[in-house]
Design a protein around this nucleic acid. Structure first.
Length: 663
DNA sequence: GACTCGAGTCCCGCC
DNA sequence: GACTCGAGTC
């Protein structure tokens, strides 16, 4: 193993016992983790006994790639004729916290009274549940809206509070109402055999707490645990880590307090500072030399982050002297901004021998990438849009996934979503009656749809509609054993005639085609998934899709992934690096985000750290831009340059700076 | 019950 | 600008 400096080497060589690596951006944190894994394997630790935890799937995939390069050919027995599915069973596990928890819960969650095939509710599912609850407890529309309820619930869950504790802490009327809703929300989830994203962590924690045998079993699976981006762990994640590593104590965590950007979901920097207290024999290694970026870029980053008053004073030292001065551009509007960025990339591609994969366009919010997508498509450049729930927000995706869930394990939200899609003559009143009975008598809704359980009084038309739906789903289910998952999905989509539904709703041929292609994307993803696994299951497919796992993504994206310009938020970019980075939309209200300004003293420093993360993604070339006007909700509005632009360039004395930072 | 139309709302970030 | 919801009509 070569190319490591003394501190990195020390971290890599510490093969056992607790280890804390405190490191700035670009100092080779991930490198330490991957090299350490490689070394563990070389020293005879079985691959499957190693668990690496990252925060995003993108980071997990990056790590897997690096790891394959490092250990793929030389260590262990890798047989290229073996199927990919079999091979992957003897690899180190690299996963996000959420995927890890899903795996654990799928094995033992029945101990907490949930079915093993529980559904995972995403944002849309949560919203419809929240809406229903507010209706049930008769909350007037203005007192508490569904997403306000969800906002409170998520906040409480991130702090590991239950409904009772939330109730005690509530001060305002709205909070009180939300706490009532919270209790009901949890009950409803359990009744439906569903969990939300926050539950994945909380229930795992609870499972470990209440069932020591399960904790033991899960802890025994691994002998070594490595956690990247440790500064972003919340209380639950912290406890899960402790529960898993308590015995073997081979725990390596890596983090940087300047890159803590997840306070809003309960991350606490204190964990990283308390590490040495919790693990008294922990070894601490510091990395301060930045290998990623040129001196010119590091200078900007250092200047910026110094504006945060409460932080560990450290200065990144650039190992790459000189470099091109970062560029700051100002454009007329967001369309021009996008066009100019794409023009610049296109020039660099032609003249400087760059590949598309060398570029990243980073933004603050998910509404920003649209003009960039348009411009990139026009320029015929390959790009990949990372993250953004937009794919799942599409009606067709929601519908198809709801149907797939019916094939697996019917849950209420899915049933309600498609009970009258395509229209089967089942109207609001009939649905209400069904719901009423489920809530009051706890009759599973699917049983009523199928007629296994007595249905509430229904008209002949409604009866026919329910029978139709039940027949379509059950016919496919009854032959499931003889057919692949893809065939099942195709059969069902065929039986319900979803294509005609699309043609019925949309008259434009273009619309029809693009809507239908979304359906095909889901089916293709299922086909890909099925081919790459030894034991594919629908549950697992839906999990992976929801959790954003790479191989659940569509085939098109897969091609692009090989060599494409990356479009992503700065949050998603954490832990990654690119030779050339464009940070766009540097305007007050976007970065820092409006919400952080309203909020309090904590808001802006976190936005500043986010900007710092963005800047330090760049290896050689950094371009920042803003536009003078930006459309919001259809109207163009004038913008104010981000305070961070002044800070980066050390212009705190500029009168304009005072203006924007004092707003 | 299905469909059309206009009013009102809209989300930061991630898994 | 895009999407959802509710009122009103067939």
């Amino acid at each position: 193993m070569s190319g490591l400096n003394a501190a990195q080497q020390e971290a890599v060589d510490t093969l056992s016992g607790p280890l804390l690596v405190l490191a700035g951006a670009g100092t080779g944190k991930t490198r330490v983790i991957t090299f350490r894994i490689a070394k563990l394997i070389k020293h005879g630790v079985p691959r499957h006994k190693i668990l690496g935890v990252t925060f995003t799937n993108k980071a997990a995939n990056e790590m897997k790639e690096r790891l394959t390069g490092l250990i793929g050919g030389s260590i262990g027995t890798k047989n290229k004729y073996k199927k990919k599915a079999e091979q992957s069973e003897n690899e180190p596990t690299i996963s996000t916290f959420h995927s890890l928890c899903v795996r654990i819960l799928r094995r033992r969650i029945e101990k907490l009274g949930y079915p093993l095939k529980f559904a995972i509710y995403n944002r849309g599912d949560q919203e419809s549940l929240a809406r229903q609850i507010l209706r049930e407890i008769r909350v007037p529309d203005k007192a508490l809206k569904p997403n306000q309820l969800l906002f409170h619930i998520s906040n409480w869950k991130c702090k590991s509070l239950n409904a009772k504790q939330a109730m005690m802490q509530s001060e305002s009327d709205a909070q009180h109402l939300a706490a009532v809703g919270f209790e009901r929300y949890q009950k409803q989830l359990k009744l439906r055999g569903a969990v939300d994203f926050d539950d994945l962590l909380l229930l795992t924690e609870q499972l470990f707490r209440e069932h020591p045998d399960v904790r033991q079993e899960e802890a025994d699976r691994f002998d070594h645990l490595l956690v990247d981006e440790y500064q972003d762990t919340n209380t639950s994640q912290y406890r899960i880590v402790k529960a898993l590593a308590g015995e073997h104590r081979n725990l390596c965590v890596v983090g940087d307090d300047d890159q803590s950007i997840y306070a809003w979901r309960g991350a606490e920097v204190e964990h990283i500072l308390a590490f040495a207290k919790d693990w008294p024999d922990a070894k601490v290694v510091r990395l301060e030399e930045n290998y990623r970026s040129t001196e010119a870029i590091i200078k900007y980053a250092n200047t910026l982050i110094r504006f945060n008053s409460t932080r560990h004073d450290k200065v990144l030292v650039a190992a790459r002297p000189g470099g091109e001065l970062p560029i700051i551009n100002q454009w007329e509007d967001e369309t021009q901004e996008a066009e100019e960025v794409v023009r610049s990339i296109s020039n660099r591609l032609n003249l400087h021998g760059r590949e598309p994969r060398d570029f990243a366009i980073l933004f603050r919010t998910n509404e920003q990438p649209r003009p960039f997508e348009t411009a990139l498509r026009e320029a015929k450049l390959p790009y990949i849009l990372v993250g953004g729930m937009s794919f799942f927000d599409r009606k067709e995706v929601k519908d198809v996934l709801a149907y797939l869930r019916l094939l697996d394990e019917p849950d209420e939200v899915s049933i309600l979503r498609i009970i009258n899609t395509p229209p089967r003559g089942i109207g609001k009143k009939s649905i209400e009656n069904l719901l009423d009975r489920t809530v009051r008598e706890k009759v599973p809704m699917w049983d009523m749809v199928c007629g296994y359980a007595e249905r509430p009084k229904v008209t002949a038309r409604v009866k026919q509609g329910l029978d139709q739906l039940a027949a379509a789903v059950n016919e496919v289910r009854s032959v499931a054993g003889n057919h692949s998952l893809v065939d099942q999905a195709r059969m069902l989509i065929d039986k319900i005639d979803y294509k005609s539904e699309i043609d019925r709703i949309y008259s434009e041929p273009d619309d029809r085609e693009s809507r239908w292609s979304v359906v095909e994307q889901v089916v293709n993803a299922l086909a890909d998934y099925e081919q790459s696994r030894k034991k594919p299951t629908m549950t697992n497919f839906l999990d992976r899709l929801l959790l954003g796992d790479q191989d659940a993504n569509s085939d098109k994206e897969k091609q692009l992934k090989k060599n494409a310009i990356a479009l992503m938020t700065m949050h998603a970019a954490k832990g990654l690096e690119f030779p050339e980075v464009y940070i766009v939309g540097l305007e007050e209200g976007i970065l820092p985000h409006q919400r952080s300004l309203e909020d309090d003293e904590a808001g802006v420093p976190e936005e500043r750290r986010l900007c710092y993360v963005g800047v330090t993604r760049a290896e050689e070339r950094l371009t920042m831009s803003m536009s003078l006007t930006r459309k919001k909700w259809g109207k163009a509005r004038e913008t104010i340059p981000s305070r961070f632009l002044y800070e980066l360039t050390d212009q705190a004395d500029n009168p304009n700076y005072a203006k924007c930072s004092k707003r």
